[in-house]
Simulated assay, not measured.
Amino acid sequence: MTVTLVYAAYAVGVLAALLAFGRASDTLGRRPVLLAALALSGTSSLVFVLVGAMSSGGLPLLFTGRVLSGLSAGMFTGTATAALADYAGKDNQLRASVIAAVANIGGLGLGPLVSGLLARHAGRPLQTSYLVHVVVVVLAVAAILAVPEPVRPDGPRRLRFQRLGVPAVARAAFLQAGTAGFAGFALLGLFTAVSPSVLALLGHHNPALTGVVVFAVFAASAAGQVVSATLPARPALLAGTGVLVLGLAVLGISLARSSLPLLVIAGVIGGAGQGLSFRAALGLVTQVSPAEQRGGVASSFFAVVYVGISLPVVGIGVGTREYGLVHTGEVFAAILAVLALLALTSLALRKPRAA
Rank of each mutant, 00 (worst) to 15 (best):
T179V: 08
A340H: 11
L19M: 12
Q93T: 12
L238T: 14
T4G: 02
G224E: 04
V307A: 13
G109W: 00
A11V: 07
I253T: 14
S300K: 02
A233E: 14
G275C: 08
S55G: 15
L339C: 14
Q162P: 05
V169D: 12
D154S: 15
G283L: 04
V134M: 08
A37M: 03
L71P: 05
I316Q: 03
L84D: 01
G273W: 01
M1V: 13
G224Y: 04
E292H: 15
T192W: 12
R157H: 13
T210L: 00
V213H: 00
L244H: 02
V285M: 05
V331S: 08
R152D: 13
Q162I: 00
E292D: 15
V264R: 02
V304G: 02
L164T: 05
A17F: 03
L255V: 06
H205I: 01
P352L: 03
L260N: 06
G252Q: 08
V141W: 03
A333E: 02
T27V: 10
A223T: 15
L5F: 12
A172F: 05
L40T: 01
R30L: 02
T179L: 12
F63D: 04
L344W: 15
L188K: 00
Q127A: 11
L344N: 04
R124H: 15
V326T: 14
P156F: 01
A298R: 07
A266W: 09
G123D: 14
G111S: 13
V214K: 00
